[in-house]
């Protein structure tokens, strides 16, 4: 069934869009990532103009994150206090990121920067996560029921402004979460994604939060960052396609529910390995596209 999208101004098969939404929704529920880093390239692939794809996927991320976070709320796997602290930094970061984005757009190099950001960040994060989770699995196998791992005392624990995050079982300074939120908000705005794939590892490895709480909290935070991004794109660039978003989110919300169920049944280490592999796959694909000589050297674009 073909459907004409009013803002994208192309006709696309409705079931293809439902499918894309569904796949990304499953991943979103499983890993607590918004899925923006997957949905945007997939939309390019079916012929949606890049500007519309970026803006509209932000809107779809809002829906799948709301759906996912509600499931996590019920299981009490959301650290609200941490989420709000992260969000505070996140909104400031988004505002800065959009300024950077517009500056680069004026210079005509925004595509390159976005791709490089993807390759660098996905590469680093994917690689670190993969190594860490393989090590964790080896440890678990080597010493079945061994001693619980001692909490490491990092430099971040010595900063002032200490706060208690009960759900995460942490007593740390508010400065690192605010900084993480800002960083992710900034990158999210530049890369046109919610930033979950950066947020999740940052929460685990930088803040030392338990994996189960990380996903719900990340989703909670993403709702607002992605919402802010959607509003900004709709207001300044008129590139949010409601009809496209609608089809994606119908598939997405269903997928997110399925994904959340899968995620709860899987072991945390397994979950991390799969996320790491997925992140690395996207990174390699984008990296190769930069290195291989393109078939067509010219491209048309606004």
């Amino acid at each position: 069934m073909q459907i004409f999208l009013p803002i994208a101004e192309v006709s696309v098969n409705a079931f293809t869009l439902l499918g894309i939404g569904g796949i990304v929704g499953v991943l979103s529920g499983m890993f607590g990532v918004g899925g923006g880093f997957l949905i945007t390239p997939l939309l390019f692939f079916v012929g949606i103009p890049p500007a519309v794809a970026v803006a509209t996927s932000a809107n779809q991320i809002v829906a799948s994150s709301v759906s996912g976070v509600l499931a996590h709320f019920k299981r009490k796997t959301v650290d609200l206090k941490m989420g709000l602290v992260l969000l505070g930094g996140g909104l400031v970061g988004s505002a800065i990121g959009i300024q950077i984005f517009n500056m680069l757009k004026a210079m005509g190099q925004v595509d390159l920067l976005v791709t490089l950001c993807y390759v660098v960040f996905l590469g680093i994060i994917g690689f670190l996560m993969l190594i860490e989770s393989i090590r964790a699995i080896k440890r678990a196998k080597g010493r079945p029921g061994g001693r619980p791992e001692r909490k490491k005392h990092l430099w971040v624990h010595n900063l002032p402004l200490k706060m208690k995050f009960r759900a995460s079982g942490l007593y740390i300074s508010a400065i690192p979460p605010i900084a993480v939120g800002m960083m992710v908000g900034m990158l999210g705005a530049v890369m046109g994604v919610g930033g979950g794939f950066i947020m999740v590892p940052a929460m685990i490895y930088l803040l030392g939060m338990p994996t189960k709480v990380v996903i719900g909290t990340s989703l909670f935070q993403i709702i607002f960052t992605a919402g802010f991004t959607t509003l900004l794109h709709a207001y300044t660039n008129h590139t949010v396609d409601v009809l496209l978003a609608f089809l994606l989110l119908v598939g997405g919300v269903i997928g997110a529910q399925i994904g959340t169920q899968i995620g709860l049944k899987m072991k945390a280490e397994q979950l991390r390995i799969w996320l790491a592999l997925l992140v690395l796959a996207v990174c390699l694909k984008l990296g190769f596209d930069l290195l291989l000589p393109p078939k067509e050297l010219y491209s048309l674009g606004a």
Binding site: V66, S67, T230, Y235, V240, V242, L243, A245, A256
Partner: peptide, 29 residues
Amino acid sequence: LYNLAYQHALIYGVMALAIAGLFGWGASE
């Protein structure tokens, strides 16, 4: 939709968010 997106961008944006939020909640329920 096209006219709304260009002439009342803010209303359009809020509408897009409302649809997204409602759907997320609806699916969860």
